[in-house]
Amino acid sequence: MGILANGVGEDEGEVSGVLADAHEREIKRQRFNHHQNGQTHRNAEHTQLRGRHCFATVGATAGFRALLEELSTPGFLQSLAAHGFTALDVQCGPDLEFFRDRIVNLSNEETHGVAIRYFGYTETMRAHMLACRGELDVRLSGCVIAHAGTGTVLEAQSVGAPLIVVANPTLMDNHQVELAEELEALNWAVHGHIGNLAAAIERILERIAQGTLDALPPYTPPSFPVSAADRVTLFDWMVLTCYPDELAHQQHLADLRGEGPMTNGDGANQQEGEGAGMLQLD
């Protein structure tokens, strides 16, 4: 259990099954590290790195059987193992029983040495995602496979873990496809498709190979409360509309400080380097 249990896991009350016995995983890991050493001539301390970690989640609200089905196919598990993944955590939502039945029926060869853990819901989503975030000298970058729901996507984005989004077609007017395509266009995530998830894994690995995802600095949560430059002010202005005199006064002050009413352009230019806080004026 030694390899996988640090990071997440021990605090996980609802983990209901740990498959693939530890011995086999140990062998698998040594083989993988050996293989990697041979390929890239990394120094000794890199052999201590943990294998890649995959976290799959269907979200808190609705079930997503098609994704769970795909995750539990031997073909997909093989592609995980082939790319150096040693662990797969799955949050199943309402279909926990369904997933359990499928996993129990898999033989040891069919899991390809990937340790599969599954649970219905988790309160430590962030911890699971952090386990997929690469960190210099600590762990290799894994990936998060998620339904294209806002909550999950934003969480993964804030942690900085590579993300594969799969749209859940059973929801109201299939709205998740929209977001999945947008995320692909923004280059925030890889749009994965049911039936060919292995291809998405391959693309994620390409991305990891090109970038620095395997060697990120340690995760630091964003500062709170946010700096004045990033604060959302719209609601405060709305409060001021309840007090017209005060509103007029404040707007006058703002105009003075901003040297006249703002024009298009300046605002947008000053937003450079603000990362996610990209708000532009029209």
Binding site: A229, T233, G258, M262, D266, Q270, E274, G277, L279, L281
Partner: peptide, 8 residues
């Protein structure tokens, strides 16, 4: 406007 440099 989120940017405080706009002083709004």
């Amino acid at each position: 406007t989120i940017g405080a440099r706009n002083a709004l």
